[in-house]
């Protein structure tokens, strides 16, 4: 991952995590794999878990330990209502922001 991507990610990783958790609960390693599969690039545990902890602490997600299917106990994260709300606000914000940036960097804006 380039340094720039790292910087971008720092701003939106929490939104990405909320997005991934919107429909189903998941655990850290699985989230990292989903992010990678979605094309965001490999996310190291050292980056991901502090974000999860902060989201948990601010009540946007909850966590509980449970046995996975045939695997060891894992900490599963699940989005809360205020998490849904935060995603609902943050998603459009990001979209608007990204659209503006895209417009600028592709030269689609006059003047």
């Amino acid at each position: 991952m380039t340094e720039r991507r790292g910087q971008w990610l720092r701003g939106v990783l929490d939104l990405c995590v909320l997005g991934l958790l919107r429909d189903h609960e998941s655990y850290g390693y699985q989230l990292a794999q989903s992010l990678d599969a979605a094309g965001i690039g490999p996310i190291q545990g050292g980056t991901l878990y502090p974000v999860l902890l902060r989201l948990e602490r601010s009540g946007l997600i909850t966590a509980r330990w449970r046995e996975g299917t045939g695997g060891p106990a894992r900490k599963y994260y699940r989005i809360t209502e205020s998490g849904q709300a935060a995603l609902g606000r943050g998603g459009p914000d990001w979209q608007a922001f990204a659209t503006s940036v895209t417009a600028i960097v592709t030269g689609g804006v006059d003047g």
């Binding site: 850290g28 390693y29 990292a32 190291q44 050292g46 900490k75």
Partner: peptide, 23 residues
């Protein structure tokens, strides 16, 4: 306890050198 256990499962799932994964 929680944080260490979580890091341990992560390392078990993904392999990888903890120095790269977590620093």
């Amino acid at each position: 306890r929680h944080v260490v256990a979580e890091a341990a499962t992560h390392l078990r799932d993904g392999g990888g050198d903890p120095w790269t994964v977590f620093g």
